[in-house]
Structure formats: structure tokens, C-alpha cells
Design a protein around this nucleic acid. Structure first.
Lengths: 226, 226
DNA sequence: CATAAAAAATGAGTACACTCAACTATTTTG
DNA sequence: CAAAATAGTTGAGTGTACTCATTTTTTATG
């Protein structure tokens, strides 16, 4: 076998990992996070109980492992949707709408997911969450940067703080919705009005400008490096 | 006995509750939240294991019960400190500094506390968290309202969205610090610069104005009612 | 190919949050 | 004041996340 760059050991590990994550995903969605026991996940993936914990330190780590890829893809989807709108405000709102639409498919799971993003217990988890946050901030910031490019914002507009503020506002209201303080229509209203506030008095009339004068974008924020 | 408006039953309950909360507080601070068992709390307060759970549905509820009063008082302390500063920006920064200073005394506990504020499981908890958030938003908003009163912000400045945005930014960075993404100096820097961004271009030169023209402040936000 | 070394899987065992049927203390009623 | 009703306490029992000494599988070595 020439093509097998991986030994049997590595192959088996990869395979088990795949089965465990798939089983966990299915069960979390079917029965909920709390109601799913680690033993059920083990049974469904054909391994012994203890084996699950050699692939994820805790059940919570498993949750992050399971949804990391999916959420990273979600950020890209949200970004693409948002670019179809023409004004910055609508772009940012559309970006968050796409993410909320995803969470709304399974609100109990979204709650647990959000809790885990806000309470990082293990280094493995920190890495994954950090990566996710970095992608999200990066894409959000790009929306702001594009807006400065097309002159909707002034050239010296601080895109990184704006992206952080927009996300912070979104996150606060998402939490309020997931914890039952507000419902979806209220969420939509307050998110839009608070984003409006954030941008109020900062927008330009689009003015033709010289692109070459703007410095390259390389602002990094504390959540963007792994 | 004329003064004992409470029957023996109520007295006993109150007394047990007091002992349980005191024991929980001590143990959470001495050993940490996770390392403290519900049995230890029961032993330290002279009740049986099961009794603890008639006063708090879960260990997490107990945590909120224990720190609710203390955090409400903290908000008032923070508010009073903040009023000693003259500019709005410094006031808001001082307000958050006071809260951070409190959390820094016991960071592991602050982490757990923050997790619980962001993931409300029981109705009892929702009530307490909601109350706390209401107080905090109320005080923050008051700082903004005072700034409009003295003409630092324009009279039509939206204080409620501003208070929410400021809190959201603070909360995001606090989480970043508690989860180990940034250290305290970085936190201070990024919080100040992001608050600066939030207020940039919105401040007035103080101008003498007619106070009677401003409508009374009664803006409520979704986190402020119990 | 046999044997040694290393890595991974196993599952019985442990600790702990929480439950609940039985019990005890208090209040109400006649 | 006794008896009935109500409220509160108890602690043994239950379920489950996670551990770890032992066993099995894979790879490395001569």
C-alpha cells in the first residue's frame, strides 16, 4: 500500500474520532445536550465508555469539537449573504441574521453552545473558540473596511473597534433572546436600533476618493489569533 | 411575644437559609465553586444534604443567591466612584473599573459567576439576574443622561442604546480577560479605546442650556424589568 | 518472524449533584 | 388540648461524567 500515508493506528484513531463526533452531533440534536449521556455516544460509535474521553476531555469539549467546523462555515455563509446588501447597516444586520437563523433551528443547543463559547475550560477548547472568534471578527471587520473603501465611512474610521462593538451588541441581545428575556421580533428590533445607534453620525455621503491613499488593513484584535 | 411577626417555622427557615448562604459563600471563596460539594455546604450549615436543595434548585442557583446582594451593592459603589470623575468617558471607565476590581479578587469565581449570568437555567435565577442587569443598566444609563444634562452630549442623544453598547463592550472584554485571551493591562487599554470609539464624534463642547426642555428619562430596556 | 516497546482502548470503579418516600416539626382546627 | 393538616427535613438511593489500572492492538527492533 503506497497511498496509505497513515499507519493503521492513525487510521483507526481518525475513524473513531469521526464516528464519535458524528454520533455526538446526532444525539445532541435529537435528544439535547444534557439528555445525551457519554455512554450513549460511546455505544452509538461502537467504542467503550472511556474511549470518548480520550478524544475529548469533557462532554463540553465534545460539543465544541462537533460544531466548530459547522460554525466556521456558517460565518462564511453569513458573510456571503451580507455582501448582497448595499448599505453597511443592512450588511451587518444580515450577517447576524444569518447566524441567528442557524441558532433558531435548535435553541436549546444554541444556549449550551453560547455558554461554552463564554466559558472556556480547556486549552483545546480555547484554541477552537479563538479560531471561531477570529474568523467572525475578521469577516465583520471586512464589512466595515469595505464600507470605508466605497466611501460610506470616512477613511480613518476605526474598523476593529467597530467590529468588536457590533459583535458585542449582537452577542448581548442574542443572550437575552436565548435566555428568554426577549422574543425574536424584539431581538430584531433592538439589534437593528442599537446597530443604527452605533453607526449614527458616522456615515458619509458616498464620495469618490483615491483608494491608494488608505493604509492596508492589518488590525488584529485580541480574539483573532489562535 | 408581640414583636415576633414570624412564626417559628418562618424563623427557622430564615435562619437555615442564612446559614446555608453563609457557608456556601465561605466555601466557594475558600475552595472554589467546583471543589465545593453540596454536602460540605450542608455540613457547614448544620443541615442534611437534601435540605440545601430546598433552598436552591441547583448549586448554580446557590451561587447567584449568594452573590446577588453583593453584586447589587457593587453596582452602587461603582456608580458612586464614577460620579467623582468629570468627563463621561472617565466616568464610564471608572464604573467598569470598580466592577473589575471586585472580580479580580477571585478570578475563578468571577468566571463561574459570569457563566451563570450568561446562562440562566431556572426562573428564580432569571429573576435575580434580571434585577441585577436592570440595576446595572439603570446606573450606566444615568451616567449618559447626566452627561446630556450638563451638555456633554446633545439633548437627543439615545442614552439607552449607549448604555447597552457600553455594557456589551465591557462584557465582551471582561470575558476575554477571564478566559485568558488577554491580561489586565490589555483589558484596560482595549476597553478604554473601544469606549472612546463608541463616544467619538458625539461629544459637545459644554453649552449652557435650558434644563426644563429635556423630557423626563424613562427609557426602559429589555434587561431592566424584574 | 518473534519479541519488546509504545500507544490506544477498555470497563469497572469513584465522586458528586440531585431526588424522593418516609419522617419530624409546626400550625390549624374543633 | 388532642387530632388533623400542613410544611419542612432527612439521608439513602440514583444517574452520570469522568478516572485509571489493566488489557489489547499496533509498531519498532534484531
Amino acid at each position: 500500500m503506497v497511498e496509505a500515508a497513515l499507519g493503521r493506528r492513525e487510521q483507526n484513531k481518525l475513524d473513531k474520532r469521526r464516528r464519535i463526533l458524528a454520533a455526538a452531533r446526532t444525539l445532541f440534536m435529537r435528544k439535547g445536550f444534557d439528555a445525551t449521556t457519554s455512554q450513549e455516544i460511546a455505544d452509538a460509535s461502537g467504542v467503550a465508555g472511556g474511549t470518548v474521553f480520550t478524544y475529548a476531555r469533557t462532554k463540553e469539549d465534545l460539543l465544541i469539537l462537533v460544531f466548530h467546523e459547522e460554525m466556521a462555515a456558517l460565518v462564511e455563509t453569513a458573510f456571503r449573504s451580507s455582501r448582497r446588501r448595499k448599505s453597511l447597516l443592512k450588511q451587518v444586520a444580515t450577517f447576524f441574521d444569518a447566524i441567528v437563523a442557524y441558532h433558531e433551528q435548535d435553541i436549546p443547543l444554541a444556549r449550551v453552545l453560547m455558554r461554552q463559547l463564554g466559558y472556556v475550560a480547556s486549552p483545546e477548547q480555547r484554541g477552537l473558540v479563538s479560531d471561531l472568534m477570529g474568523r467572525l471578527f475578521g469577516r465583520l471587520e471586512q464589512l466595515f473596511a469595505d464600507a470605508t473603501d466605497r466611501g460610506e465611512l470616512s477613511a480613518d474610521f476605526a474598523t476593529a473597534p467597530a467590529a468588536r462593538a457590533a459583535f458585542a451588541i449582537y452577542y448581548l441581545h442574542l443572550g437575552a433572546m436565548l435566555n428568554g428575556y426577549i422574543d425574536r421580533p424584539q431581538f430584531d428590533r433592538v439589534l437593528r436600533s442599537d446597530l443604527e445607534f452605533l453607526l449614527s453620525g458616522r456615515r458619509h455621503e458616498p464620495v469618490p476618493r483615491d483608494h491608494a491613499l488608505r493604509p492596508a488593513h492589518k488590525s488584529r484584535n485580541h480574539l483573532s489569533d489562535p
